[in-house]
C-alpha cells in the first residue's frame, strides 16, 4: 500500500509551532510520513522542500496573521515549479472571512482552531484522493 507523505511547515517569524507539531504527531500516529521543516520558512523554502520530498500534500500552520500572503505565495510558486496539482492545506488563526478567497486561489482546506483531529485527518485524506 502506498504511504501518505505530507509536508508540514511553519512560515515566517511566527514561533508558535505547537499546532504544527500536534498535527504532525497526529498524522504520524495515523500512519503518515510527515516531513517537518521546522520554523521560519519562506514560501520558497516550503515549495522546494515539497518538490524534493515528492509529498502528496503541503500543510502550513500560520498564527501570525500573514496567512493571505503565505498561502497565496505558496500556491503560486507551486504552480510555477510544476507541482500545482499537489493540494495545499493549512490551519491557524485565520478569520472566517479570509477563508473563501484563499480557497478560490487554490487552497484545498483550512482548519480553524478547535477543529477535531479526526475531521482534519478525513479532510486531508479526501484532498489527497
Amino acid at each position: 500500500m502506498k504511504k501518505y507523505r505530507v509536508l508540514i511547515a511553519k512560515p515566517g517569524l511566527d514561533g508558535h509551532d505547537r499546532g504544527a507539531k500536534v498535527i504532525a504527531k497526529f498524522l504520524q500516529e495515523s500512519g503518515f510520513e510527515v516531513v517537518y521543516t521546522g520554523l521560519h520558512q519562506t514560501p520558497e523554502q516550503i515549495v522546494t522542500s515539497a518538490l524534493q520530498e515528492a509529498v502528496d500534500a503541503v500543510g502550513i500552520s500560520v498564527l501570525s496573521g500573514s496567512h493571505n500572503y503565505v498561502f497565496t505565495e505558496v500556491v503560486e510558486l507551486m504552480k510555477a515549479k510544476g507541482i500545482g496539482e499537489i493540494p495545499v492545506f493549512g490551519g491557524g488563526t485565520i478569520p472566517e472571512d479570509d477563508i473563501p478567497p484563499l480557497m478560490e486561489k487554490g487552497v484545498k482546506a483550512l482548519f480553524r482552531p478547535g477543529t477535531p483531529l479526526d475531521e482534519i485527518l478525513a479532510k486531508i485524506k479526501e484532498i489527497i484522493g
Partner: peptide
Amino acid sequence: FSGGAILGDRV
C-alpha cells in the same frame, strides 16, 4: 505501531 514517521532531519 502506526507505520508513520516524523521526518525531521530537514529542520
